[in-house]
């Protein structure tokens, strides 16, 4: 559908990739760890290695959860915008196909949050 307006209505999005000075926005959320109230948002250069996202921004955001240190990253399962996704930690975000405003989620089998309660 398009908007019902009384005059031509043409505006560009406020969050185009070029608005972020070379970075692209990436969101990451941790499944079954509801203590973190939502996925978080970072601006990252497209050549950032995927592993650096995990060790840098993600560790800062999620590191205070006691499960963080126990994660076996080889077993972690990822989705990108809800679709299965297999990132290579050595490759860049761009080479892993992570586009501007993609939303990543990861599941850590065996780790089920505080007291196993999904939090």
């Amino acid at each position: 559908m398009t908007i019902t307006a009384n005059a031509p209505y043409e505006f560009t999005s406020h969050d185009r990739q070029e608005d972020f000075r070379g970075a692209r926005l990436v969101y990451v959320g941790w499944n079954r760890h509801m203590m973190f109230a939502s996925p978080y948002c970072w601006p990252l250069p497209p050549d950032t290695p995927f592993g650096a996202l995990v060790e840098g921004p993600m560790a800062q955001a999620f590191g205070m959860h006691p499960d963080w240190k126990k994660i076996d990253w080889a077993k972690a399962e990822w989705t990108r915008n809800g679709e299965p996704f297999s990132p290579d930690p050595a490759k860049s975000l761009a080479d892993n196909g992570v586009a501007h405003k993609d939303s990543l989620k990861f599941t850590t089998p065996g780790l089920d949050g505080i007291a196993g309660a999904g939090i």
Partner: peptide
């Protein structure tokens, strides 16, 4: 305390905190 700004809904602008209705431990996407 959260260290990073949240993902937000493009329409209501609330952070995407809501689970799938009826599944309180699965975040809606």
């Amino acid at each position: 305390e959260a260290q990073t700004p949240p993902q937000q809904c493009q329409v209501c602008q609330i952070p995407t905190i809501f689970p799938v209705p009826g599944e309180p431990l699965t975040r809606a996407e």
